[in-house]
Simulated assay, not measured.
Amino acid sequence: MPPMSPMSGNLASFRFADVSNSTTLGATRLTAAEAFSILSQLALASRRGERSLCRKSAATVRALASASDRNRRRLAASGAACVLAAAFRGFSRGGGSESFDILCGILSSLVLVFSFEDEEVLSDLGSPESLDSIVLILRCGDSSERRNAALVLKEIFSFDGDLARAAARVEGLIEELVGLIRDPISPRCAKAALLAVFHLMVSADEWMAARLVRMDMVRLVLESLVDSESDKRMSEVALAAFGRLCSFEPGRKKAYENALTMPVLVKKMFGVSDLATEHVVYSLWVLCKNWQGGEEEGRGGGCVGDALQLGAFLKLLMLLQVECREGVRERATDLLKHMYEYEHGVGCIDNEDFKGLRLPI
């Protein structure tokens, strides 16, 4: 083991004292040797099942990571996520309820040193026993503990689609996340749960999508898009999730029934990001191409007529005049042709719209 720095004595003096003393920690510049020592102690305590020592070690990691970005990066580079994930899995065995406080403490440290590119971290946190413990925290933790659990799930779901689909089968997981969205205990907790569910939707297969639709997620996604005007990342993930639900018939049915669908999609086509534009074009394409009705609730052309009335045709024409991925261009062109065929009786397309168009449709 590399020699300890002269600061090691100072570190030892507060390691298991009042780790919330930000004045002391703010002056602490963690070295690689010190990080190694703390994490080694945490790993050993976890393997031995020493609850008190593990709790104190995790609290030390949390306090140091919170003290400065430099400390956080040092701990992350030293493998803190792997050690904490292994400890979380270890104390989850035999039922997380017996070690609830320790598990909450470990998770609150873990969210500060995320490193989910490591397969070991994913393997430990995605294990059945760990996921059961995360569900328990979602159900019984306080606001910050539930938010941490949702953030961990969001990271897992965004990185590994297969693991997301497997996790969705864990009893109570989806229900607890959706419950945090419907009845939020804090804005930060609700946002974390929303992102976790949205990433789960992106990976959804048919059975999971149908389940999420039954839980009214189409409406919740659309309402979140209305509320996420200044949050680019939230809008991108929500639009990706919405498009995935619309890939399946139950999701499209709910989208057709919701009066917000077309206004939200048309508005979000521009002004968010290129990625958001791609998701919007896909959702419009899959909804309009699969629309089978002629009249819906007295509206001529149903969702296609709504899109035309809201100016989608002109926006798609504008999209063809700028650089975009070939797949997006092909969908936009196909959608324009489809809308033009549906235009009869709606009266939203004028030949003037085609003036100056560089590319034929």
Results as ranks from 00 to 15, higher is better:
Leu194Pro: 00
Asp69Trp: 06
Arg188Lys: 12
Arg29Glu: 13
Glu330Asn: 08
Arg182Thr: 09
Met208Ala: 07
Val281Arg: 01
Leu316Val: 03
Glu50Ile: 13
Gly298Leu: 11
Val237His: 07
Arg93Cys: 11
Glu34Phe: 10
Pro184Trp: 06
Cys288Asn: 11
Val266Asp: 00
Ile156Ala: 08
Val237Ile: 12
Leu177Met: 07
Lys355Phe: 10
Arg219Ile: 03
Leu212His: 04
Met4Trp: 03
Gly345Gln: 11
Asp350Arg: 12
Phe242Cys: 01
Ala166Phe: 09
Leu284Gln: 08
Gly305Cys: 11
Gly95Met: 06
Lys253Leu: 14
Ser203Asn: 13
Ala86Pro: 01
Val121Ser: 00
Glu223Phe: 06
Gly26Ser: 14
Trp285Pro: 00
Val178Trp: 04
Arg169Gly: 07
Asn148Tyr: 10
Ala80Cys: 06
Leu212Lys: 00
Phe36Ser: 15
Phe354Tyr: 15
Tyr282Glu: 12
Asp183Asn: 09
Arg15Asn: 00
Arg93Tyr: 09
Leu177Ile: 08
Glu117Gln: 09
Met208Tyr: 04
Ile137Ala: 03
Phe270Thr: 10
Arg252Pro: 05
Ser144Asn: 09
Ala27Leu: 13
Val61Arg: 00
Lys254Trp: 07
Leu310Asn: 05
Ala332Lys: 01
Leu107Arg: 02
Asp160Cys: 12
Ser133Asn: 08
Asp183Met: 06
Gly305Tyr: 10
Met201Leu: 10
Leu163Glu: 10
Met4Glu: 01
His279Ile: 05
Ala332Met: 06
Ile38Arg: 01
Phe198Met: 07
His344Ala: 13
Ser143Lys: 11
Lys355Ala: 10
Ser108Gln: 12
Leu220Val: 00
Gly301Tyr: 07
Phe313Arg: 01
Ser235Met: 06
Leu239Trp: 05
Ala35Ile: 05
Glu117Pro: 00
Thr31Met: 02
Leu239His: 05
Glu326Gln: 15
Val152Asp: 05
Phe313Ala: 06
Arg325Phe: 05
Thr277Leu: 10
Glu297Ala: 13
Gly356Arg: 03
Gly243Arg: 05
Ala209His: 10
Ser158Lys: 13
